[in-house]
């Protein structure tokens, strides 16, 4: 994990920047603002997604992770190749699929599956979970075999980066931008001391430089010539 730094490393950097390293008067504030900024980076700047293996319960449903912003896709690995299921949009929940006002996956008729003839998943955002159905034609009849792959389900999702259960490790390339952004936020609120407008503007410029540097690191070569240059080192 050499390319990751801990949250405390960043907190110390911010406290050093604002001159509070001995008192630690604004430690909690710095930590929370760093978490906020890191979530913003993950949600809006970064294009990294997480991949997790989940297990389905008896209803062929599984919980969406608490650090997910958006569930990108659900699928399984077949012979080492990721095979995504088809997502049914929420509008596909029909009145006859509801029982007592609650979505009941068991009542989803095979008419949908006749068109799909394969795996599909449906998101239930109200309850923070998703359902999986996997239809196969066995001896001429459509059968839901999702239970057979219950321990092989793979999800891909955009993350906030904040998993509340344990320690947090922040990618090293975001460190400069995060520290600069939080220090700028402190300075805008005149914490701990007020600075001149010129100093504030130079901090904003420096923060933008760090942000564009981070965005440049995220850039992947797209065209043929860029890929060629990346492979043969002609940048």
């Amino acid at each position: 994990m050499s390319n990751f730094v801990t949250l405390e490393n960043l907190v110390s950097s911010v406290l050093l920047e604002i001159g509070d390293e001995s008192n630690k008067r604004y430690q909690t504030k710095a930590r929370q603002w760093l978490l906020d900024e890191y979530r913003r980076v993950n949600t809006h700047l970064s294009d990294v997604y997480l991949e997790r293996k989940v297990s389905l319960d008896v209803n062929n449903a599984a919980d969406i992770p608490e650090d997910s912003v958006k569930l990108i896709t659900v699928g399984i690995y077949r012979d080492g190749v990721f095979d995504p299921f088809v997502k049914l949009p929420d509008m596909e929940i029909r009145p006859e699929d509801m029982s007592d006002g609650i979505f009941n996956p068991e009542t989803v008729t095979a008419s949908v599956a006749n068109e799909m003839k394969g795996g599909y998943w449906k998101e239930d955002r109200e309850h923070g979970r998703f359902f999986v159905k996997n239809y196969q034609t066995i001896q001429g009849t459509l059968t839901d075999t999702a239970a057979n792959i219950a321990d092989r389900i793979i999800i891909r999702y955009r993350t906030t980066g904040l998993n509340l259960g344990g320690d947090i490790f922040i990618p090293y390339e975001t460190k400069d931008y995060l520290v600069a952004a939080v220090t700028y936020k402190f300075t805008c609120k005149a914490i701990p001391v007020r600075v001149t407008n010129a100093a504030l503007q130079s901090m904003a410029v420096q923060m933008d430089i760090y942000k564009s540097e981070y965005a440049a690191l995220l850039y992947e070569p797209g065209s043929f010539y860029e890929v060629r240059d990346a492979v043969f080192g002609r940048i």
Partner: peptide
């Protein structure tokens, strides 16, 4: 490590934030 400094009033706010889990 040192304990984080706070006040009784701030703690009511911190309890509802993520920072409470990372402290």
């Amino acid at each position: 490590f040192s304990f984080d400094r706070t006040t009784e009033e701030s703690l009511e706010t911190y309890r509802n934030l993520e920072v409470f889990s990372f402290t």
